[in-house]
């Protein structure tokens, strides 16, 4: 199976493992737990939930920022600076 895959896709099992561990390093839960190699299934599941939580966070933060922007006085120095941040 693996030999067939490697001959076809030119991607070795090692590369996949490397990517998996890279992905694991990105996840907060696995980082906290240490370097214990979790199963790929669990890892992918965690990735799913993490991506979802990140989505939620981004949405939440965007909402907050837009709220702040709307409540802020337009010609205050704060608004000025936020605008510059957004532009950059």
């Amino acid at each position: 199976m693996s030999s067939r895959r490697s001959s076809r896709g030119n991607i070795s099992e090692d590369e996949i493992n490397e990517l998996i561990s890279k992905l694991q390093a990105l996840l907060p839960s696995s980082r906290r737990r240490g370097s214990g190699q979790a199963s790929t299934t669990k890892l992918l599941k965690e990735t799913c939930s993490y991506i979802k939580s990140l989505h939620r966070e981004v949405d939440d933060l965007s909402d907050r920022l837009s709220d702040l922007m709307s409540t802020m006085d337009h010609n205050s120095p704060g608004a000025e600076i936020i605008r510059s941040i957004l532009r950059s």
Binding site: I16, L19, L26, L61, R64, L68
Partner: peptide, 27 residues
């Protein structure tokens, strides 16, 4: 696919940080 997922997670993380930065800056 894994590569893409990694990139996406990273970009999301950056996005979150960036947004929280901005919010922290404003309030």
């Amino acid at each position: 696919m894994l590569d893409e997922i990694i990139n996406y997670v990273q970009s999301l993380q950056k996005q979150v940080e960036f947004l929280s930065m901005k919010i922290a800056a404003s309030n």
